[in-house]
Amino acid sequence: MRVVMFGYQTWGHRTLQALLDSPHEVVTVVTHPKSEHAYERIWSDSVADLAAEHGVPVVIRDRPDDEELFQLLKDADPDIIVANNWRTWIPPRVYNLPRHGTLNVHDSLLPKYAGFSPIIWALINGESEVGVTGHLMDEELDAGDIVLQRSVPVGPDDTATDLFHKTVDLITPVTVGSLDLIASGRTEFTPQDRSQATFFHKRAEDDIRIDWSRQAEELHRLIRAQSAPYPAAFTHHKGKRLEILAAVVSEKRYGGTPGRIFYREGEGVVIVAGADARTGRNHGLAVTRVRTEDGRELPAAEYFTRMGGYLTDRP
């Protein structure tokens, strides 16, 4: 099939590579201009550079809604558009232009985790698996019929970085497998159960701020979800920002006030956690590695030279 590819960053790069390695013909690539936004510098392999290396025409756009681009797409005469990590709305006249419409490749197990940062949100929420879905695009974001879906389990110590690498490896089988099904003449695919749909927003500063009234298990997932190269989860100690780079759930249960710097356990320093911590039924969060406001990274046992005092969500 003749394919136009819409994509950006490493997700788009991996999708384009899968298409270039497949029997299908990539006739045009549309990608976003390079950005200096902090989140868009993460996983920033260039779709434009890869296309140029293979002699594929490249169009750079923030939004795909101008007449010049629409005419270019018509002239390309695609059988299908494939999109992955396209960051702005694609209008119906574009996604309906090809004979087979548009296949969107999304890094979640739809209908759950539509929208943004699905792997991070899924890890924070304690999901047992994550994955990639190829679905046909319609008027509602990430809501079209599912062509193909693949999943991987979430391990007890997996970080968002681990899950990124696991799921990005699913892009090729989902993309090429979906196109092969469509090219075979199949037209009926699996409608999404919209009663199960969830939609998530982009991550922001407040989303990585540690709230010590949350259970230690939740905080452990948050810290794993904010693994490098993502911005680290943070708290405040004595009025200064302190990033928590690594932690485990404590073996013992600790009672008291959330945020209290309480006890050395193994290689960590236990912080009391949970809104009902006063009951003594909760595990604490044993912090093992931190980064200070001035950029020093060190073991928590070296940073916390004495017990007592509190970590807080604000200075």
Rank of each mutant, 00 (worst) to 15 (best):
A114Q: 12
A114K: 13
A114W: 07
G115V: 00
F116E: 13
S117F: 15
S117E: 13
P118M: 03
I119N: 09
I119A: 14
I119V: 09
I120Y: 06
W121K: 00
A122S: 14
L123C: 15
L123I: 15
L123Q: 07
L123R: 11
I124M: 13
N125R: 09
N125I: 08
N125G: 01
G126D: 14
G126S: 15
G126Y: 11
E127N: 00
E127L: 14
S128L: 14
S128C: 11
E129N: 06
E129G: 08
E129H: 06
E129D: 09
V130K: 01
V130Q: 10
V130D: 05
G131D: 10
V132Y: 11
T133C: 02
G134A: 07
G134Y: 07
H135R: 03
L136P: 09
M137P: 01
M137N: 02
D138E: 13
E139P: 00
E139F: 05
E139I: 03
E139Y: 03
E140A: 12
E140D: 07
L141F: 11
D142A: 08
D142T: 07
D142L: 13
A143Y: 10
G144I: 00
G144P: 08
G144T: 05
L148R: 06
R150G: 09
R150N: 07
S151L: 07
S151C: 07
S151K: 15
V152K: 02
P153R: 01
P153S: 12
P153A: 11
P153H: 05
V154F: 10
V154N: 03
V154M: 06
G155V: 11
G155D: 09
P156C: 13
D157W: 07
D157S: 15
D158E: 06
D158Q: 09
T159V: 12
T159A: 01
T159W: 13
T159Y: 14
A160E: 15
A160V: 09
T161A: 15
T161N: 13
T161H: 12
T161L: 09
D162T: 08
D162S: 08
L163R: 04
F164Q: 08
F164R: 04
K166G: 06
K166D: 05
K166L: 06
K166F: 03
K166S: 14
T167Y: 02
V168L: 09
D169A: 15
D169Q: 10
L170V: 03
L170S: 07
I171K: 00
I171W: 04
T172P: 08
T172F: 01
P173A: 02
P173E: 04
V174S: 01
T175M: 02
G177W: 01
S178F: 03
S178E: 06
L179I: 09
L179M: 10
D180I: 03
L181D: 02
L181Y: 00
L181F: 04
